[in-house]
Simulated scan of single mutants.
Amino acid sequence: MNRMKDKVVIVTGAAQGIGATYARALATEGARIVVADVLDGTPLVAELESMGAEAMAVTTDVADETSATIMAGAAMERFGQIDVLVNNAAIYASLKMKAFEDIDLGEWDKVMAVNVRGPFICARAVVPYMKARGYGRIINISSGTPFKGTPNLLHYVTSKGAVLALSRAMARELGDFGIAVNTLAPGLVLSEGVVANAEMRERLTAPVIASRAIKRDQTPDDLIGPLLFLASDDSAFMTGETVVVDGGSVMH
């Protein structure tokens, strides 16, 4: 129950959904949590504090360099260190499925800004503090979709494929500084956003479950164990790797 004791963890996009699940799980293991989100993270902070955890909320636009710098600075001012960054914030459940030639360029750019530039900017904001201590864990959240070539979400699939490449190259650059960089790739998860997107559920749920070796819906709780493994010293000698958690739809 204390794998993350006294570790300081920033979780982007943590105010709700899967990010909030990550934050609760990390807090349960003793971590001090920074809830970084464009949405109001104070309700989750209050919940975590009621559990006995230390937590703070920082309004953060992951695609904005200044905002990411403020996020890292606020974490350092409150806790004095940054041990783990979970790059969870992304645009997905709000997207409408469509043929790639019908994707608006503005929407393409927005997805890339949050899903690709976001992890890059946030990592760049925290890495100097990690380097100074010779320790860090960066967990980038990708998806099973790049391995499948899931159709009708080309901008999302492309962005999550870029996250895989980003993680591998970043791991090579940061290994000498005691910083591990790994990727967690969930399948179709019944997050709050996915449940609210009726079209996505109707078009994807049945074929995704049929493709799995374990034939059931995936819930946010299915990701807790793998996340804690990557965030803790259980994975100390592991970097540049991708852990796919999707019931065996992708066997990577």
Results as ranks from 00 to 15, higher is better:
Ile121Thr: 12
Ser94Leu: 04
Val157Trp: 02
Val35Ile: 15
Ala57Lys: 06
Thr239Gly: 10
Ala20Glu: 14
Thr183Ala: 04
Val116Gly: 06
Leu39Trp: 00
Pro151Glu: 04
Lys215His: 04
Gly161Ala: 14
Gly80Leu: 11
Glu192Phe: 00
Ile121His: 01
Ser249Trp: 14
Gly41Met: 05
Gly193Ala: 07
Thr239Val: 09
Tyr129Ile: 01
Ala231Trp: 01
Pro186Tyr: 02
Ala162Ser: 13
Val208Met: 09
Asp102Met: 09
Phe79Asp: 10
Ala15Asp: 05
Leu190Cys: 00
Gly80Glu: 07
Asp234Glu: 15
Leu184Asp: 10
Asn115Lys: 06
Ser167Ile: 10
Ala15Trp: 02
Pro220Cys: 07
Asp217Ser: 07
Gly118Asn: 05
Gly13Glu: 09
Val126Tyr: 01
Leu184Gln: 10
Gly175Glu: 11
Ser232Gly: 09
Val208Phe: 10
Asn182Lys: 09
Leu188Asn: 04
Thr69Lys: 14
Leu44Lys: 08
Ala125Leu: 07
Ala169Ser: 15
Ala46Phe: 02
Thr219Glu: 13
Leu230Ser: 07
Ile179Tyr: 05
Arg203Glu: 13
Met130Gly: 08
Ile82Arg: 06
Pro146Asn: 07
Glu107Leu: 14
Ala14Gly: 14
Lys98His: 09
Gln218Gly: 12
Leu105Lys: 05
Ala206Glu: 14
Asp233Glu: 15
Ala25Ser: 14
Val245Thr: 13
Leu184Tyr: 06
Glu173Arg: 13
Asp104Gly: 05
Ser143Thr: 07
Asn115Tyr: 02
Ala165Cys: 08
Arg212Pro: 00
